[in-house]
Design a protein around this nucleic acid. Structure first.
Lengths: 275, 275
DNA sequence: AAGATGTAAGTAAGTACTTACTTTTGAGCG
DNA sequence: CGCTCAAAAGTAAGTACTTACTTACATCTT
């Protein structure tokens, strides 16, 4: 059910043939408000976004927002929670299957390559997956940066549930390959930091600083960037750098895990008093 | 001069050795307001900081702020301009020497090592310099991130005058060493991105996400981090990885996985106001 | 006295959030 | 089908408070 994620986000200046505000049921409206608010929050941050703007962008009156979310803060938290924390709190945006933390996707993506000890495939796939995710969903990184800067409490949750786990995951792989003699003796987390630093910095630069693709100082496709980052990292930590490309006899590809339809959370209307 | 940045925030009865901080000349006051405002802007962003808060933190009435800066926006711009753009606009904070762009410091810092083609020294020095700057002045990175997210017009200036130039500077060095046969044939900017990505991501993570030094997943001194990042990058792009340390006879070939803990407390003394 | 440094007390336009009220929906029932 | 009717979806117009910025006036230094 309810697949209309953000197709109805009321394009600001698009001509609307039907001025009818198209009455929605609660779950639809809640989802639509969240989608619109997410865009605005990611653009201007929590304090920079007003409930009035959200209401206008959603094409409803302000009171509607407060019927669906007790406070602006609750709306923000619901979005963060859904977007980055895999539904850590129960108050996530309803009507949408709980998406697994990003880390699980990555785990499945590189399982085969890891088993085959195809180092290049492992790191290239992770890099490419992250780069594509950041490019397809620019709201994600912006929201994350705002959360970190604004010291939102869910920032710690996101770090622990996603990034920290990813560090341990990749660090564990490096450690294993060190034991097998393939990598030299460096701190595994130094390698992970170099790798994730390259990837995340690349996305962040393209998103926030070097925005114009035509003027970019480092102009590559995601696939190309992923390959270069992975290659530099691997040569950097390899015991025998010339062996990096040796493994590439065949490319093991694995189909993406399908996600299952999920239970939804009802429109809970607890008017909890804040402050 | 002007050390009285926040020691005079309304302590009427406190014994003041100097004839109180009551009255300042315009330049002092302007500078003090800017310093206080910079701290607040870096903590909460432009929209999240109110002029009332700035006035209170500076120990003056709100009207004083608007005597020295026509608008809140002008105050913000003056700070950014002074802090990150080396006085691009003329309206920079007065009474302070125009500090040269960060890039010039770096140029001077590695000139000798570059001439000697001591690759490790070059990249290690740059990394260490940046890491220490970020640690000593946490306001800098936070302000930059806010500027980028909030799409402030001076963000582009900062990028062009500092980061882009740094990219070209390091990229040029890599290209030269490629011509000399020392580095393999990769896109020089890929190397710079990996390198700066590691360094900046490291600072950003420590500042925004993995804040507690005791809980950090990658716990190293700045010097150690700089060495590891430089080493991984150089082995990653070297034509002959075993030659990396050749120039430095005393450099340890085998890295010691130090997890001893006590060594990384350099100057964390200033972190006193955490929530 | 001049001129700069300072303040208390505004103002108009927001801000998040509420209240009182109207319209739409859809099931139950004759 | 047409009718009622309660619950849900919606709105206009508030409320109490904050915001950036001003005005009128006082105080210090030379």
């Amino acid at each position: 059910m309810t697949r209309h994620l953000e197709n109805d986000t009321a394009a600001p200046d698009a001509p609307q043939p039907t001025p009818t505000a198209a009455r929605m049921c609660a779950d639809e409206r809640r989802l639509q408000i969240a989608a619109v608010a997410m865009r605005l929050f990611s653009e201007r941050g929590f304090r920079g976004t007003t409930t009035k703007e959200i209401a206008q962008a959603a094409g409803v009156s302000e009171a509607i927002i407060f019927r669906h979310f007790a406070t602006k803060e609750e709306l923000y938290t619901a979005i963060i929670d859904y977007k980055g924390c895999g539904g850590a709190a129960q108050s996530s945006v309803a009507g949408r299957p709980e998406q697994p933390p990003v880390i699980d996707e990555i785990r499945g993506l590189v399982a085969d390559a890891m088993e085959a000890s195809d180092d290049l495939a492992v790191f290239q796939a992770v890099a490419r997956h992250m780069l594509e995710h950041h490019e397809e969903d620019p709201e994600f990184l912006r929201l994350l940066m705002y959360i970190a800067l604004e010291n939102h409490s869910l920032g710690q949750v996101f770090w622990d549930k996603n990034v920290r786990v990813l560090y341990e995951f990749l660090g564990g792989y490096i450690r294993r390959r060190q034991r097998e003699g393939a990598f030299r003796d460096v701190d595994p987390y130094a390698g992970v930091r170099v790798f994730l630093g390259s990837v995340i910095h690349h996305s962040l630069v393209n998103l926030l600083w070097d925005k114009d693709p035509a003027r970019r100082i480092f102009r590559v496709t995601n696939e190309e960037a992923a390959r270069q980052f992975a290659e530099i990292l691997l040569r950097g930590i390899a015991a025998d750098p010339d062996s990096i490309n040796a493994k590439r006899a065949e490319a093991p590809k694995r189909t993406t895990r399908n996600r299952e339809g999920g239970a939804d959370v009802k429109n809970h209307r607890d008017k909890n008093k804040k402050r």
